[in-house]
């Protein structure tokens, strides 16, 4: 702005007329609509292109059922059995909805996921805070956590089925074990990595242990806890699906297992999309939460 001010008052030495202010070159233009929505636009284009290409496989399949012959080269088109196209997946999805069983499968899977995950959050956060806060307690518990965290919890499934049966509780147990360790480990790390300066401040102003915990440890570990929760979602979903694949009466995993063993790959894809959507939705909700709690974080910029 200072440059423009000087330009308006400058007087040309010979003619004595006021020189027009020089055009300001470096005024940043407001971002175009494209620039503001760049990530969404490019993302949409790439996904759409992918879906169109995938769908066009169906047209190729219809036009050349025997494959495309190019000179001596024969390109086989994978049959529907191998790779259904999006429209076929949608139709399979519709059939599932109309068949009436999907609602029950979704309900059962959702129940397993929700109960197992919420239990893991409650127990995991509480235990993680305890482990991070009490050094001796962590010495006692760490060997077990390391053992279980290094072991894929899915291997416990046969045992869990013996203990809890093939109903929802064996799946709840495997979901719980899947999410629990990610949550516990991250929460404990959050408490352990508190800023030593802040602890000193609290001590200097005479904080009791409880005050120190409430005003420093708890808010200070929130980012770590949220990371644990986000990682836990992935593990929990694996637990639901694999648990149901192995042994279940109902559920999306069970649906996919049956569809798979009867070569209904379009239904397998439908199940896959339901699971993926559930994971994306939960992660999205959690990101919302993260943003709310991290308003104070400096923007990386």
């Amino acid at each position: 702005m200072a440059v423009t001010d000087r330009a308006t008052t400058r007087v040309a030495p010979r003619s004595g007329t006021i020189v027009e202010p020089a055009p300001v070159l470096a005024v940043p233009k407001p971002d175009t609509w494209f620039k503001r929505n760049e990530s969404k636009v490019i993302g949409t284009i790439s996904v759409t292109t992918f879906l169109v290409l995938w769908q066009s496989l169906g047209f190729v399949r219809a036009a050349w059922p025997q494959g495309i012959v190019l000179g001596g080269l024969k390109l086989a088109v994978p049959p529907t059995l191998f790779l259904p196209v999006p429209s076929e997946v949608i139709l399979a999805f519709r059939d599932l909805v109309q068949g009436g069983e999907l609602a029950q499968d979704v309900a059962v899977s959702l129940q397993e996921f929700a109960i197992g995950y919420v239990l893991a959050v409650v127990v995991g956060v509480l235990l993680g805070l305890g482990i991070g806060w009490y050094r001796r307690f962590s010495y006692a518990v760490d060997p077990f956590i390391t053992f279980f965290y290094a072991t894929p919890r899915i291997v416990l499934l046969p045992l869990l089925i013996i203990w809890f049966g093939i109903g929802i509780w064996s799946k709840i147990a495997v979901v719980f074990l899947g999410a629990f360790f990610a949550i516990v480990i991250n929460t404990a790390a959050g408490v352990r990595n508190l800023d030593a300066n802040l602890i000193k401040v609290a001590r200097s102003f005479g904080a009791t242990d409880l005050q120190l915990f409430r005003t420093i440890a708890l808010p200070g570990s929130v980012p770590f806890v949220l990371t644990g929760l986000r990682l836990g979602i992935g593990h929990a979903l694996v637990g639901v699906v694999v648990g149901e694949l192995v042994a279940a009466q109902h559920g999306i995993g069970r649906l996919m297992a049956i569809a798979g063993s009867t070569f209904q790959s379009d239904k397998v894809f439908a199940g896959l999309i339901i699971i993926a959507s559930a994971g994306m939705l939960t992660t999205l909700l959690l990101q919302r939460l993260e943003r709310r709690y991290e308003a104070w974080r400096p923007r990386a910029n």
Partner: peptide
């Protein structure tokens, strides 16, 4: 021990970021 008759201004700002 620490007491209300003293207050320390720290070398680092040491503010609670949240």
């Amino acid at each position: 021990g620490p007491g209300p008759d003293r207050a320390l201004v720290f070398q680092q700002p040491s503010l609670l970021p949240w």
